[in-house]
Structures are given as structure tokens and as C-alpha cells.
Design a binder for these strands. Structure first.
Lengths: 175, 175
DNA sequence: TTTTCACTTGACATGATGTAAAGCTTACCA
DNA sequence: TGGTAAGCTTTACATCATGTCAAGTGAAAA
């Protein structure tokens, strides 16, 4: 998935890579979607996302939390982009993939909410935005699709992405 | 395409809708991708995009130009979303669709550049961004994928989208 | 009257997912 | 030592969408 950036990964490709027959893959996973879901689960564990999120929560103040979040997120997306892309592609025609994607994105929504709430608590949130609306906007701005456009279509590097997105977020949400 | 938001539109569906046989569609368009490309062409003409773009260029100053752009774009996306989505879905596996998408998006890139150049000319562009980088960032922020997340996933309405995105753009790019 | 155009019908190739059945190896267990 | 279960292989087939091909039809134009 990561090698091919989520595109053109057939069941037969996976089987070949593993060194078993295509049919044998179905002895482990009921369908292609199931395999992807299990992989998401696996990656979440391997990458120890929870620990990295807790670290963000321990930032001194809201502004540093925002910065810590962008540092984490900007470095994390490249690690999971292929799988995310594969899930995203399957989403439109597969209900299970759609809800799996939604569940993944709800974590990101939660982290966005965290940052916005912190800003709000410190009276730093721009007055023209209610926290809920601000969270949704924040969430959209840091979406993987946005990253995709900047990194892949515009050839930005991770550093540029983190730096510029941090500035945009600060200017958009901090009073 | 618009009815089904770009998903699950088979050649047989199109044929049925038109009232001819599936094979007859191939007498008019060589492939599904060709049909989509022709539709993009057609829609561009019908919607008279060029006229609407020229109108934006006639704004009094850079700030008004930015506002005019968001007014246009926020109202335009819903009209073409289904087709855009269909193209986007085909892009990953079809070279022709990919380059067609790129060509469509380069128009948007051009409009982003226009706004950024105007800001730059009026010395309003934030100093930490070179015009080129600013254009790319602007372009990403107003992407259809971003619109999709706010309007479809977050249930925003067009008015909200235009208002909030205008604010984000102003805060991010105007000194 | 003939030809051309736009279409129909039916058949078939391809490529991906997914199902099903029978057989083979290896390791373990009584 | 024989039986069995796990994990796989091989072969075959169903389905569904795209796309190709060939023969035929009906109406209008030349």
C-alpha cells in the first residue's frame, strides 16, 4: 500500500508479495476491505498513535499544543498515506470502508477539537467562530486531501507543510 | 453524474437515461473517460465560466477580488461537484482522466495566482510568503476536496463555506 | 431504388473480486 | 505408527463493468 501509494494494489499483488496464492489470502481476510481494515488496526498499534497523542496533550499552553499537533500530524501522514489513500478510494463504493474511514477521521476530529478547546479556554480563539465550527474548519484544513495537494501536487516537503500550515492555523484561529 | 454525485454512474446507466442501448453510447464516445472529458468541455461552455472569471478580474482592488472569487467559486462548486468527483475517482487508474483533472485544476491555480498577484501588487501579501508558495497554499485551501469535507462531511451550507473561507484566506494572506 | 445513418441485438474478451471443492504437506498427538 | 488438523495449493467457476465486434434493421436522403 505504501509502496504504491494506495493505488493498484490488487489481492494478487498482495499474495505475490507475501508468497502465497491469491486464494490463500481469503483464508485470512474475508475481503479486500476486511484486509484494509485489519491493516489500519495493525498500523495504529505499531505506530503507537495513542502515546503520541498524549504527548500533545501535555503541551504547556494552547499555542504550543497547536504546534505540537502540526509537528506530529505533518510527520505522521507520510507514514500512513498509502493506506489512507486506498481506504479513501474504496470508500465511495463500499459501505464498510466508508465507515472505517469515518472512524479514522473522527480521531483527527477529536484532536482538532482538543486544540480548539484549549485555545477557547485561554481566550485565544477568534471571536467570530464558535468552537464547534472552528473545530470543523480546523479539521478540514489539516485533512489528508489537503496534505496530498500540497505535498504531492505542489511538491512541498514535510517541513514546508508543517511550517506553513502552522502559520495558517494560527492566523485563522488565534485572536 | 450530478444526481448521483459522481458515484455509481455506469455506461449502462447513462444509456438507459438517454434511452439508447449501452453499445450505442460507444458510437458517440470512445470510452467512459472520453465521455467525461466531453462533458467537462460541455459544462465549461454551458456555465460560461470565462465570463464569470473576467468579472472577477474587474474588481476594484485585491481584497474585493478575493471576495468576488470566493463568491464565484463557492457557488460554482456545487454545480460541478458530481462531475468533478467522477473525474477524481477515475484519475488514479486512468492517465487521460488524470491529465484532464490537472488541466481543470490549473484553471483554478490560475485564478489563485491572480488573487495573490493582486495582493502582492498592492503590498498586501503577507511577507513570510513568496507569491508562488502563497498561490499553491491558496489553491489547496480552496480545493474541491476541502469543500467536500466542509459541505458534505460537516453539513455546512454554501453561505457558511463562502463566509468562513473568505475569512481564512484574508487572515492567511493579507498582512 | 439505393445508400447512408443511427441505432439494435447478441456474442465475446478482459480483468478484478470472490466462492467452492478437492488434494497435498507438515506437524503434532494418542 | 496411524490419524488428524492446519495451512496451504490448484483448478474451476460466478459476477460485474468496460470495451470490441459483427450482423441486422428502419427511416430518410440522394
Amino acid at each position: 500500500m505504501e509502496e504504491r501509494l494506495g493505488v493498484n494494489v490488487k489481492m494478487s499483488d498482495i499474495a505475490k508479495d507475501v508468497g502465497i496464492s491469491r486464494q490463500a489470502v481469503y483464508l485470512h481476510f474475508a475481503s479486500r476491505t476486511e484486509l484494509m481494515l485489519a491493516t489500519v488496526q495493525y498500523v495504529d498499534e505499531i505506530k503507537d498513535v495513542n502515546a503520541r497523542i498524549e504527548q500533545i496533550q501535555q503541551a504547556q499552553n494552547a499555542t504550543e499544543q497547536l504546534e505540537a499537533f502540526m509537528q506530529f500530524w505533518g510527520n505522521y501522514i507520510p507514514e500512513i498515506y498509502g493506506l489512507a489513500k486506498a481506504l479513501l478510494n474504496t470508500r465511495d463504493t463500499d459501505e464498510a470502508a466508508a465507515s472505517a474511514w469515518e472512524s479514522c477521521m473522527s480521531h483527527l476530529h477529536g484532536m482538532s477539537e482538543l486544540v480548539i478547546q484549549s485555545l477557547h479556554a485561554e481566550n485565544l480563539l477568534v471571536t467570530h467562530l464558535q468552537p464547534e465550527l472552528a473545530t470543523e474548519l480546523f479539521w478540514a484544513l489539516v485533512s489528508i486531501q489537503n496534505w496530498e495537494q500540497l505535498i504531492r501536487d505542489c511538491d512541498w516537503n514535510t517541513e514546508q507543510y508543517i511550517e506553513q500550515m502552522t502559520i495558517v492555523l494560527k492566523r485563522s484561529f488565534i485572536q
